[in-house]
Design a protein around this nucleic acid. Structure first.
Length: 269
DNA sequence: AATGATCCCAACCGCAATCTA
DNA sequence: GTAGATTGCGGTTGGGATCAT
């Protein structure tokens, strides 16, 4: 996969765009669209590389861009989304109509990061370490060993256990905690957080993609999201991860539980 | 008023994913 | 199936604006 040669080509202009260049780009795209960014500057008569044109258009000239300061609501949204998605600016921008990833990235680094230093609205801020498979070995900590409802026991309870393994902010970075969301018949949710010993890799062994292709064909799985599956067993529901999208959704659910106590509705397929 | 520090944001860089021939 | 072209994305930078001394 070779990299496209870009602005180093002789004669191509770099740096801030002039109003003239902007108007040339706008009128060209309005008349011809932007099916090929690389060819565009030549066709439009701009001494810019295609990449520069694309950036200028998507970050500044696009007609649907909302200009002006971010509202409090937008800032709160960014903070919440960043909590769930991390530095995935384009994903955050997709949820904020009229705002670009670049703009959000800038506002984050200049304003919001500082705000968050003074105020930590959610205790589980950076839990983006691996969310790993729930092992049927069960808990290894002294406390969690009391969690008799967990995993593959033979209880006839109808409680559902959704177990994930985020890093707890209360614990040092070298430690890991697991969170079990216990959902009973009446949709009542209980959250249990447990410290996991350093041998957590055993407790949450990693799985590869083949796990799912194997499992899906042989076991009773309920698809609940783009890349995620909840494996339904008789008494409980274990969540496994197969992709970063899964982590996002797990974070989302976790945060809804933490903040509202409500059981979020799972997406339908 | 001068100057250095800091803030802010548009633009660039480079990697990786995706597309296409 | 593969290599090259294109696009998308996140990190970083440059320089003007503003603030503090």
């Amino acid at each position: 996969m070779g990299r496209a040669p870009c602005c180093e080509k002789m004669g191509l202009k770099k740096g801030p765009w002039t109003p003239q260049e902007d108007s040339i780009l706008i009128s060209y795209i309005q008349n011809n669209g932007h099916s090929n960014w690389r060819a565009l500057p030549k066709l439009a008569g701009l001494l810019r590389c295609g990449k520069s044109c694309r950036l200028r258009w998507t970050n500044y000239l696009r007609p649907d861009i909302k200009r002006g300061n971010f509202t409090k609501e937008e800032e709160d949204t960014i903070i919440k989304l960043h909590e769930n998605l991390g530095n995935r600016w384009s994903a955050i921008a997709a949820r904020l109509p009229g705002r670009t990833d670049n703009e959000i990235k800038n506002i984050w680094h200049t304003n919001l990061k500082k705000k968050l230093k003074n105020y930590q609205p959610c205790q589980n801020s950076k839990r983006h370490s691996k969310i790993n498979q729930v092992s049927n070995k069960g808990p290894t900590t002294s406390e969690s060993s009391n969690n008799s409802n967990f995993s593959t026991n033979n209880s006839t309870s109808t409680k559902q256990h959704i177990k994930i393994a985020p890093n707890s902010p209360q614990l040092s970075s070298s430690e890991m905690s697991s969170v079990t969301l216990v959902v009973d018949d009446s949709q009542m949710v209980t959250i249990k957080e447990e410290k996991i010993e350093s041998s957590s890799s055993e407790y949450f062994p990693k799985i590869d993609e083949s796990f799912w292709t194997d499992k899906l064909s042989t076991e009773n799985n309920m698809v609940v999201g783009h890349d995620q599956e909840i494996q339904v067993r008789e008494e409980n529901v274990d969540i496994f991860t197969t992709s970063s999208k899964m982590e996002e959704d797990m974070d989302f659910w976790y945060n809804v539980f933490i903040k509202t106590g409500d059981l979020p509705e799972l997406p339908e397929f």
